[in-house]
Amino acid sequence: MTERNSRIRVAIVDDHTLFRVGLREIIENQKDMEVVGEAGDAYNALTLVAQVKPDVLLLDVSIPGGDVTDNIHEIGEVSPTTRIVILSMQDAPELILELVGLGIRGYLHKSASWDELIAAIRMATPGTDRVLLAVSRQSLLGMPAGAANKPSSGPLSPRELEVLELVAKAMSNAQIAAEIMLTEATVKRHLHNIFVKLGAVSRIDAVNKATAASLISNGG
């Protein structure tokens, strides 16, 4: 009983059933781990995490139903102690840095070996702040030193543009959240990022600057 309770409780979120089956088999072959649930999309992932509160969540970067940054924030809201390890076919430095800044504990390209996966799960448990990256050398060389600790100042993401388009229509945060199926807290986070990136001081200022730069259409 004590041994079972000491196992690392892992949940798997990926939209490919065969991939999930393979991950489950690898994890359940480890004496110190157990799989406590699976999901294939963002909605069911959030429901699963809220119910089982896994120690570690293996999260595919591009599951249906949500942007990965939204998924990470919403998972953190329902289970703050769950550590997230990202699984991805993308090897993009900017994406990796953004997600590390959001607190993920690992980023593994799907070509990573099973022992790298197991190491990432074990490293993600409490007691260490280290992050395991299993990506290409080219991707690592593309990361500027210290960039993970700096606020994003790059172009607006597709989700941020979507939020700003709705702001331009004079929609409230609650209305925007309902319209694009996010939490109101996530909408506020997107707005904060928009203000930082555009150097805006208000919603109106952000809309005006984005319209002037032809990033969005005029809300009127």
Rank of each mutant, 00 (worst) to 15 (best):
L59G: 03
G40R: 12
I12P: 01
T81K: 12
A148C: 15
S111Q: 10
G127S: 09
A39F: 06
H73N: 12
I121M: 00
S6M: 14
Q90F: 14
V52T: 01
E28L: 04
A39K: 00
R83E: 11
L117A: 04
L141G: 11
L102S: 13
K110F: 04
V85K: 04
L57V: 06
N5P: 05
D67V: 07
P54D: 14
G65H: 01
L140M: 15
K31G: 15
M123F: 04
I63M: 10
M123Y: 07
E74W: 14
V10A: 04
D129E: 13
Q30P: 04
T47D: 15
L46M: 05
A119E: 11
A50Q: 15
V68I: 11
L48N: 00
K53V: 03
A50D: 14
L133C: 11
L132N: 10
L48V: 03
D129K: 07
S111H: 10
D129S: 12
E98A: 11
A120S: 12
R130Y: 06
A11G: 10
S79E: 09
M89H: 11
L48T: 00
L141K: 13
N149Y: 14
L133D: 02
W114D: 03
L102V: 15
L57Y: 01
G146Q: 05
K31F: 09
L108D: 00
A145G: 12
V35W: 04
S113L: 10
E94T: 11
A11N: 05
E98C: 10
A120P: 09
H109R: 12
R9A: 06
M143Y: 07
P64K: 04
N71R: 00
D55Q: 14
L23E: 13
V21H: 13
L102E: 09
I121D: 00
R7F: 05
R20F: 07
L102C: 10
R122V: 01
V35L: 02
I72G: 02
L133N: 11
D41T: 00
A124T: 01
L95Y: 10
S111Y: 09
L18G: 11
R7C: 06
V13N: 01
G103W: 04
E74Q: 15
D32Q: 05
H16L: 07
L99V: 06
P54T: 10
S62G: 13
I63H: 07
I86G: 08
E94I: 12
V35M: 05
A92D: 14
R122C: 02
E77M: 08
P54N: 13
H73R: 15
S6V: 13
D91R: 08
A120K: 00
A92M: 12
D67L: 04
R130M: 10
P80Q: 08
Q90T: 15
D41M: 09
G40I: 03
N5L: 13
D32F: 02
S113I: 08
A134H: 09
V131F: 10
S139C: 08
R24D: 09
V100R: 02
N29P: 01
T125S: 08
L97Y: 08
K53G: 03
A50K: 13
E28Y: 09
I26F: 08
M33C: 06
L46P: 03
